[in-house]
Structures are given as C-alpha cells and as structure tokens.
Design a protein around this nucleic acid. Sequence first.
DNA 1: CGGCCGTACGGACCACCGGTCCGTTTCATC
DNA 2: GATGAAACGGACCGGTGGTCCGTACGGCCG
Lengths: 201, 201
Amino acid sequence: MSEHRSRKDAVRNREAVLAAADALFARRENAEDVTTAEVAAAAGVGKGTLFRAFGDRAGLLRALYEARLEPLGAAVGTGPPPLGPDTPPAERVPALLDALLRFKLDNRALALALEDGDASPYRTEHYARWHALLRTLLERIPVAADSGFTAHVLLAAIRADLVEHLAGPGGLGREELRARLAELVGTVLTPAPAGPGPAGG
Amino acid sequence: MSEHRSRKDAVRNREAVLAAADALFARRENAEDVTTAEVAAAAGVGKGTLFRAFGDRAGLLRALYEARLEPLGAAVGTGPPPLGPDTPPAERVPALLDALLRFKLDNRALALALEDGDASPYRTEHYARWHALLRTLLERIPVAADSGFTAHVLLAAIRADLVEHLAGPGGLGREELRARLAELVGTVLTPAPAGPGPAGG
DNA sequence: CGGCCGTACGGACCACCGGTCCGTTTCATC
DNA sequence: GATGAAACGGACCGGTGGTCCGTACGGCCG
C-alpha cells in the first residue's frame, strides 16, 4: 500500500511533458513525425525524463489520449442521458458512437497516432473498456448478429484513419458524417422489418 | 508510350526480391521487423537494387500484396459465381467479403504490415477498387444506409488488425469468424422496411 | 566479334529516431 | 545543514529506411 509519493519535480515535469505533447500534437498535421526529442525539448526537459515518466513513446501517447478522453468517460460513467447509465440501450448505443466519432474528429492527429501506431489498437485497455460497454448494451437489444462482433464492427466504423479519410479534404463534413454513422447504426440495430429507418441518401 | 524495356537482370532481380520478401513475410511472425536489408540479402541483391525496383519499403509491400491478391482479383473480375460478375449483388457481397476475410486470414503478416503501415490504408489503389466495387453492388440492393459509407464499414469489419485480434490465440476459429461476418453482413443487407426515425444526437 | 554507352548494381554511407546510461543535480528527511 | 535517494538530462547507442556513386554488366552497333 505504501505507494511512494512522487517527488514534486517529477510531477511537474510529467505535466510539462504532457502539456507540450498536447500542444505539439494539436498543432502538427501528421502526428507520426512528432519526435520524443522534440516533445522533451518543448517541455524544457531531457529525453531521459520523458522516458522515465512514460516508459516509451506509446506510453506518452496513451497517457495523453486517456487524459483527453477522460471527460467523455465521466459523461458515460456518471452523466445524464443520452450518454449516462440511465439511458435505455437502444438510445445509448447511437449516442455513444456519436460521441466517440465527435471525439475523434476533435482529436484527429492524436487518435491517428495512437491507433495507427505499431501496436495493435485492440490491445489497449481503453478499447477493451469501450468494447465491453458496447457489447453489454447490444446484448440488451434484440440485435440479429453476435454482440461482441457487432461491437467490434461498430467501433471499426469510427476508426481514426477511416474518419480521417472520410472527413478529409473534399470529403464529408462533420454533420454529414455523423448522419451517416447514425444511419448505419440504425440499420445495424434494427431488429426486424418493422422498425424505424432513416431516409437514405 | 515508348516504355523502355527493362533490362533482363533488372527483371530477374525484381522477381528475386519479390520472392525473397514473400518467403520472409510468410515465415516471420511480425511483418514489421522484416527489414529491407534482410530482404535484399535473402534475394542475393544489394539494397540499392531493392529500392531502385520498388521505390521504398511500402512499395515493396504493395507490390507483394497485389501479387498475392491477383488470383482473387481475377476470380472477381472474370470468374464464375459466387465471386464473378454474373452473381446477383445480394449474393455477391457476402461472397466478396468472405473471400477477403479468408485472404486476410491466409496472409496475416503481410496484410498487417500493409494496413498498419504509416500510410493510411485508405489511400491505396486497391482499397479504392474494392470499395468502388462494393459500393456499386450495394447500390443495387435496397440497403438502408448510404452505400459508400456502408461499403467502408463492411471493409473496416475485416481490417487486418481486427481480424488478427479476433482470430488470435484464444480467439475465434476461422469458421466461427466467417460465420460471424456472414451474420453481420446479413444484418446490414437486410432490406430496411421504411420510414425514418432514429435517435438524434 | 569487339568496343562503347548507358543502365543497373551494391554496399558503404547518411540522417534520424526511439531508447539507454550514468555522472550530476535536486528533493525530502532527520 | 548533512545525507541518501530519486530524478534529471543530454551524450550516446543500435538499428532502420533511404541515398550515392564508383563499378560491372547487358545490349547494340559497327
């Protein structure tokens, strides 16, 4: 239990690196060419400090991603409908996916860097969380296909690089994309020939 | 149009590199750590030759991928049902996706390397081909959602890393995975009854 | 058949990146 | 203020994709 309290400078430096990385990733077009040396320099810190604090580059990315995702996590965990736990599944699933889509649109570079990184995005802890939640919700809806697989596919529909591709220059606008996704989710969730279905394009 | 005929040794070396890479990627677990130097050495060729022939590492990957995909492309372009052009769309779409899934299962390492590479898989020429075909087919089926977007999502459902994740150790078996995919495709293709009315954001 | 030109060869070489190491500095405690 | 431990930081390392250019070889013309 005796977790050694981190030293003050360590905490401060960790924050500095996080902030520097945040700024850098937000500004830079392609997140892949933000280097660890650059982040460290921008934070006014040595590379050793960065690696000490986050383990490796991916660790930094993950930490940053989690930090940005935290508000959404809170909204889902303890917030009001349509994201919070008091929402009926059939309504919550589309809301969740829409929120995630918006998140990725708002954090393109970072999401891209994290998901397109060398390591599989499917082994991350936060993917497991979202997938588990989605799966659980789907199980409470009379959806035709396997819940686990369907959850994976729905999440695949909003993968960072696909979103980037669709929303890229000359592509769909934010609202269009949201509409398309809602439409698709509606289709997947439609239990039987009787339910609702948005007007097609 | 006067395409300079390649010199004989150039052709031979190109083949040698392709063959060596093929063998290496087939044997190696993680395609990411097959290096260009290694491929060149295995082919009995200098690195310069490899880069001259393929431009860069990604070029080699692409060439190899295309080569392996060629039989499937032929089957789709001029083969008999259920893949060939004489198949009704509603039957051809599932067949196509199943064939692609099997391809990825049979070429895990390579598909992973190509799709998880730095460059977006969505900018490749072959993705555009498959997407266009799928979209066209979907347009001839009374599918509820937008054809283009649906095509993207269906292809996202069989992305190499997702397939890897699902079929990995302790995961679904080949046939199970195929069944799940077929199930999902069935759901998506289920003709929508009529009338809008999904949850709004 | 032999010389000549241009193309392709090939591996030493380069730039760069993630990650490590260890002498130095700073913090916390007594 | 002394002292031990933890953190710092930037030189350093191993390794990778990609380049360069003197050399060797293939193709053609005389």
